[in-house]
Design a protein around this nucleic acid. Structure first.
Lengths: 137, 137
DNA sequence: ATTGACCCTGTAGTGGCTACAGGGTCTAGG
DNA sequence: CCTAGACCCTGTAGCCACTACAGGGTCAAT
């Protein structure tokens, strides 16, 4: 019930690296925690919650700035959350775009991987990169 | 037939930014070109080819170091191209992994975007980030 | 008293560009 | 011949989100 922990314990509990936690504090994403006389940081349960929120946001692909906004929204429970919704939709569109890009990429790469036995002069990979005809065998 | 162009012309022909071309030269990805007395860089047709090769490689998602390797392979036409093939297959696996990751992400985000009219205190987005129960409505 | 795990600050590096600042050069029009 | 404006040069710093030190201090157990 002490609910006070050093940065190492917080790191393990939240699954976020120590250096990353200090970085988040430096950029103002996490508030400066209480300090012991030694100068050691000490975190309480709210701090874990906040850090987990940040971690989850990063896993969902939000930028630090977007997470900053989401944290502010979370702290104002009376405000409507249209802003959060907008962020999510925007992000969703970006993810869809990236999936589409990667799928095209995948098709292109899949068409290349097949020439281990040839010499580089005939290599379809090299040809494709060089912009050679590549008449589809 | 002069086949000599300044960096600006090369930039337009290859579709690569001027600053990026100078950056590629600085890191040794492109060889230093001939210089006019004024100090201006002048590029020939081989240089466009090489730069286009690099551009295409980047578009296919290869790292600068991978492109360095591919360029070396392309310059040794008698070598078998197993190495190029390995690079492509490795890269293909990474792309597949990223598509899978993004697809999971997409599903998660899609499940969140739907609460514009609520207040932040009930917002499923905020809840999901905070690790709240989220009992699926 | 010592060991070793932990913590501190501050700085520099990563990748792949991109954006200046502060200058020099070249060319077309007047 | 002069000037405006487009182009080029070098060198450095910034971007994102960390990550990795270096060089020190603290704490708990033995």
């Amino acid at each position: 019930m002490a609910s006070s922990r050093t940065i190492g314990a917080l790191s393990r509990e939240a699954g976020v690296g120590i250096e990353t936690i200090r970085y988040y504090e430096r950029i103002g994403l996490l508030p400066p925690p209480r300090r012991a006389e030694s100068g050691y940081r000490h975190y309480n349960d709210d701090d874990i919650g906040r850090l987990r929120f940040v971690k989850r946001g990063r896993e969902l692909g939000f930028s630090i700035d977007e997470i900053r906004t989401l944290l502010q929204l979370a702290a104002q429970p009376e405000q409507p959350c249209a802003e959060a919704d907008r962020l999510v939709r925007e992000h969703l569109a970006e993810v869809e775009q990236r999936i589409a890009d990667l799928s095209r990429l995948h098709a292109e790469l899949a068409g290349l991987a097949c020439c281990s036995e040839r010499r580089a002069s005939d290599c379809r990979i090299i040809e494709a990169l060089a912009g050679a005809p590549l008449p589809h065998a």
